[in-house]
């Protein structure tokens, strides 16, 4: 029984170090060994039982207490197991998120690469077209200058005709390219990226949730079971009461103002 108690105390104890204690303002601590605490608890239980119970009852109570204590220990083990399970889930979710992030990055790079290629192709096409237009305009000028005097009105007409023809063709090509782009890989990539971003967001939220659950620290209980308030015996009670009211009113106004805004 004493070993179990010592072991339980060891498991339930929180570890800390000297630096942590210093930061918390603790300069000296009283030390009481686990064995000694275990012995004291055991002794207290035995004395209490001895004074209050008859022999047979005492045996029954001792057995029942042992059983209850072991049950508590098992429940702690079960809790630890569920902690391990949560840790595994968290690990799996982290891996999932990681692979989603990498895939998303890969897809984004692929999309950027394709868009860059498309832009390069268009640029090359423009360069060829520019040379073609320059040659046509050169020919028109040469033809106009061949007559004497040069027919500038006819030259203007021919250049405009040529310009509008090119403009019209360019517009048609742009429209067609835009339509085509919708159905092609870029569209597929964009939709895939959107879907993956959504999945990533979902997985990250799940991971955060798991992180919170796993990191769930039972915490340290406050010394107060209920809301306190000023003690009537406190020095300057009336003044402090008024100050509390002023702080509250200022905060009420602030929070009302914030919620209305």
């Amino acid at each position: 029984m004493r070993e179990s108690l010592t072991e339980a105390l060891r498991r339930l104890a929180r570890r800390t170090d000297v630096d942590q204690l210093k930061r918390s303002g603790v300069r000296q601590v009283n030390v009481l060994g686990l064995d000694r605490i275990g012995a004291l608890v055991e002794e207290a239980v035995h004395r209490s039982l001895k004074h209050r119970l008859l022999g047979a009852d005492r045996e029954a109570v001792t057995e029942a207490t042992k059983a209850e204590f072991l049950k508590l220990l098992h429940s702690k083990e079960a809790l630890e197991r569920s902690h391990d399970e949560l840790a595994r889930l968290k690990q799996r979710a982290e891996e999932e998120v990681e692979s989603l992030r990498l895939e998303l990055q890969r897809q984004q790079q692929s999309l950027a690469e394709r868009l860059r290629h498309a832009a390069d192709g268009a640029r090359a096409g423009y360069e060829g077209k520019n040379a073609e237009i320059a040659a046509t305009v050169g020919e028109l000028f040469a033809a106009a200058l061949a007559t004497s005097p040069p027919d500038l009105a006819a030259l203007r007409e021919r250049i405009l005709e040529c310009f509008f023809l090119e403009l019209d063709r360019e517009r048609r090509e742009t429209l067609a390219a835009r339509e085509a782009a919708k159905d092609r890989e870029i569209d597929v990539l964009e939709r895939r990226i959107a879907k993956m971003s959504h999945a990533l967001e979902h997985s990250e939220a799940r991971l955060r949730e798991l992180g919170r659950t796993h990191a769930a620290d039972p915490g340290i209980a406050s010394v107060y079971r209920e809301v306190q308030g000023l003690d009537r015996g406190e020095s300057q009670f009336q003044r402090k009461k008024e100050l509390m009211a002023v702080i509250f009113q200022a905060n009420l106004a602030l929070q009302k103002g914030a919620s209305e805004a």
Partner: peptide, 12 residues
């Protein structure tokens, strides 16, 4: 925080 009356905390 300790000295603030319960009703003030509740209202906020």
């Amino acid at each position: 925080a300790h000295d603030m009356p319960a009703e003030f905390w509740e209202k906020l």
